[in-house]
Amino acid sequence: MEYFDTFVSILGSAIRLSIPLLFTALAGLFSERAGIFDIGLEGKMLASAFAAACAAYWTGNAWAGLGAGIFVSIIFSMLHGFASITNRGNQIVSGVALNFIAAGLTIVLGTAWFNQGGRTGQVPPEGRFSGIVLPGAEMMRDVPIIGPLYANVISGNNILTYIAFLMVPLSWWVLYRTRFGLRLRAVGENPGAVDTAGVSVVWLRYRALIVTGFLAGFAGTYLSIAQSAAFINNMSAGKGYIALAALIFAKWKPVPVMFACLLFGFLDAFANFMQGKSIPMIGEVPVQIFQALPYILTCVLLAGFIGVARPPKAGGVAYTKER
């Protein structure tokens, strides 16, 4: 029973840690399926976390924070589009640049505005997304097995968590069951064909990037005003890259993306739990192994040892209309 309680608590923290990954990986899904590589997910997450914390601090309204986070994230997405779609610049270079701009700007502006070495002010409770206790959670708590799972893993999360899981079927529906989704996937495989059909490649890719910015804005907001109560220097701490890894690990498909993010979130939670503990027979496992595991797994996958990860065919190439 004791083991089960520990397991439930790890599972709960795994869910919390995988939410920012899930939003970000879904964000990357839309841009990469449209043929735009997005190394800049990390920067979008960071910039939106900062914007959300500032807005929530000033207005005391969590939804204003979310709005600001989404807005700034879409701005970053549009800059990426301006460079890589309109000016046909290198998409990797643009992403790297935007990551730097986000990393620097959040600290420079944060220090200038709040004078706390890059931290923003403490966001008041009403400016945060706090946990929602689902109906019956307290009643169910004493039911064996299902009770703790329901009370501690499914219930008690904030609204963004539930939105994240709703986004998974929604993304699937948009990508596979709407005209926009069909065209978006087509433009990532063969933009020439889309252009021949009379659909604007440029506008389609910009729309994909707007969706990317929108979703990444949730991820940043979750970090700064749902998981914590302020923006802290470099608080995304490489999560954008883990999300990118999850996206590849899931072979650019929405439902597997969810499982990949849950897996990587679980590894993170497990690493936190294992810190300083030792396993019988093996001894203390270095926490760095768990930190590196998402990246190692992704490389093993990319090497073709776990199925084949086939990226969208036109990814990373700017489209040039024939002259």
Partner: peptide, 25 residues
């Protein structure tokens, strides 16, 4: 003191953005 050392990260990002991503602009 109002300008932190991270300003160079911003400049670096802008240089990569303009000299790299927008090189054809």
């Amino acid at each position: 003191p109002n300008i932190t050392r991270d300003m160079i990260v911003v400049i670096q990002g802008l240089v990569i953005f303009f000299a790299g991503a927008l090189e054809y602009m």
